[in-house]
Computed example of a mutant assay.
Amino acid sequence: MEDVITEAAAPSRFLEEDLNILTAPSSPLPSPFLIFPYTQQPQPLNPSLLIVALSTSSLALFHRLRTASPAASLILPELSLSLPDNAAHILPLSPSVLLAALPFSVPAPRAYAVAKALLAGRIHPDSVLVLDSLAPPNFRGKLSSDEAVAFKLDSAAERKRSDEEKLLPDLEYYPSGSVVDGLGAAILARCQVMNVRASLCVSWPQFDASVVSLIKGLLHRRLLQGFDFDLSDEEVLKFGRSKDRVLHSELYI
């Protein structure tokens, strides 16, 4: 006779989604929001360019600006403000350019809510540049940590521009069949809905001195000409080499 005490229970006859209807749904998270310094006049910010730094390399490029006084801050209610990297500061790079530096990762279910909070209300940029990293599982092709590469995706409003007017005219488009997800894709989708000029730059390796130099060169050639990053070539070398020392197989193969 079977021991009913120690024998494993029989598998449930219910599907997982059927069992979930018996539990109370979790309360929705509050929406992300912007806060502004109390000294700032209550008027919208209308930069000609908003740069959104998401990748580790782009954050490293602007790391010395974190001590500057922010024009605004993006807050996620679920993140504790007791940690310094749990707020995204929006910093002025010039009278017409703003930088939104997001040092924390945003879960996929919250990506569009963050994009909407960033590009709604009191921030209305004429154009948006997103600096993100390339995820190897999403790329159809081969990647090596010995070579820094970058590609772009543009909104419809940006693609209509001539090569002389585009944000990143030197970059090739992301290969067909490759995928972009996360906050970078959500921001680009938000710009597409709002008919805003936008370009999403994805780079590889995810953190590498060569990628920092590549992004710095792209910005210096067109968008931030003459801007002092306060980052010498010797300091760039201190970022070291990427730990991703392998070739990645092509997507779908």
Rank of each mutant, 00 (worst) to 15 (best):
L59E: 01
L50R: 02
F139T: 01
A9V: 03
I253F: 10
L45T: 01
I75R: 07
A120N: 13
T56Q: 14
D146H: 13
T23S: 13
P25S: 13
L119N: 10
A10G: 10
H124Q: 11
T67Y: 08
P77S: 14
K243G: 04
F229S: 08
S155W: 09
V128G: 02
Q43I: 15
E2T: 09
E164P: 01
A108F: 11
K238E: 13
A189P: 00
C201G: 00
L200N: 04
L98W: 02
P37F: 12
L200T: 04
L45A: 02
R13F: 09
I215A: 07
I75E: 13
V196S: 01
D3M: 06
P136I: 07
R66Q: 12
D85W: 02
L247W: 10
N138S: 12
S73D: 00
A135D: 15
I123N: 02
L231R: 03
L168Q: 10
L19W: 10
L188W: 01
L247V: 15
N46S: 12
H220R: 15
P30E: 12
K160Q: 13
A9W: 12
Y173L: 13
P137E: 08
Q41R: 14
T39E: 12
S203T: 12
A186H: 03
L99G: 05
L83Q: 14
A53H: 04
N138C: 12
N46K: 14
E147M: 07
W204K: 00
S31T: 11
D170I: 02
L59K: 15
S242E: 09
A120K: 06
H124D: 04
G177N: 03
V202A: 01
D230L: 11
S145G: 14
L93R: 08
